[in-house]
Design a protein around this nucleic acid. Sequence first.
DNA 1: GCCAACGTTGGC
DNA 2: GCCAACGTTGGC
Length: 152
Amino acid sequence: MNYWLFKTEPAECSMDDFVRAASTPIVWEGVRNYQARNFLRDQLAVGDQVFIYHSSCKDIGIAGIAQVTRAAYPDPSQFDVTSSYFDPKASADNPRWVAVDLTFVRKLPQLIRLDKLKSLATLIELPLIRKGNRLSVMPVTRAEWQTILALT
DNA sequence: GCCAACGTTGGC
DNA sequence: GCCAACGTTGGC
């Protein structure tokens, strides 16, 4: 089993949306970066654990945990002309982008703030806190996962 | 295959 | 809203 961190803008999809969805999977679509896609497509497996990170908002940080309940499949939004994620270069027999399903595990009792994460020497390798990082799906090592969980 | 121009991300 | 940093595009 592997560990990951997914960024999301809470205005789009927040940890509270997972809370409300309870046992209903949330379709994680709209990833449009090749490196992130490759992680989704090649390495995300059912049962993997995912930190849900809130970006571009007032309270930036890790808000909770979800797990992968369906591995990669073609992202439906790439075929949807009404979606902002529509990709004219994608076709049903040659999809470019993939989605996974995530299911709620738990919300953290309090948000782990970005500045807190940045303050820990053991997390300097985490892509999230590297300057200029733009990955929206990134691997988290077991050690990093445990370090972060220990903050709660 | 290079690389300039452009668009996007995301913290501040 | 700013802007640094990065990824993507497309002409050559």
